[in-house]
Amino acid sequence: MACADCKFRAKYDENPKSLLGRFWRFHINFCPGWKAYLKSLSDEDRAKVAEKYGLK
C-alpha cells in the first residue's frame, strides 16, 4: 500500500512539527486509504502504529 511508503509519513517521522508532517497527521484522521491500510495490518502491527502516531 502507498501508506507504508508515503513521503509525507516519512516527513512526519523525521520531524513531526514540520509543515508536511503536521499535514500528514491531520490528513490521516479522515483518509480512506489510511483506514484501509490499518485494516490490512495484523492486530499487533496495528497496535504499534496506533501507539506510534497516537491513534485511538
Rank of each mutant, 00 (worst) to 15 (best):
A2Q: 06
A2V: 00
C3W: 11
C3M: 09
A4Y: 03
A4D: 02
A4H: 05
D5T: 03
D5V: 02
D5P: 00
D5I: 00
C6R: 03
C6T: 00
K7M: 10
K7C: 01
K7F: 14
F8W: 15
F8D: 06
R9C: 01
A10P: 02
K11L: 11
K11V: 14
D13Y: 06
D13T: 14
P16R: 13
K17I: 06
S18P: 02
S18I: 05
L19R: 15
L19E: 15
R22L: 09
W24N: 04
R25G: 00
R25T: 03
R25W: 12
F26I: 05
F26Q: 13
H27L: 03
F30M: 09
C31R: 10
P32K: 08
G33R: 05
G33W: 05
W34A: 09
K35P: 02
K35E: 07
A36H: 08
A36G: 14
Y37V: 02
Y37S: 02
L38W: 03
K39D: 15
K39I: 03
S40V: 04
S40G: 14
L41V: 07
L41I: 08
L41G: 05
S42H: 04
S42R: 04
S42Q: 02
D43H: 08
E44Q: 12
D45W: 03
D45V: 03
R46T: 05
A47L: 13
V49F: 11
K52T: 15
L55G: 14
L55A: 06
K56C: 00
K56T: 06
K56Y: 09
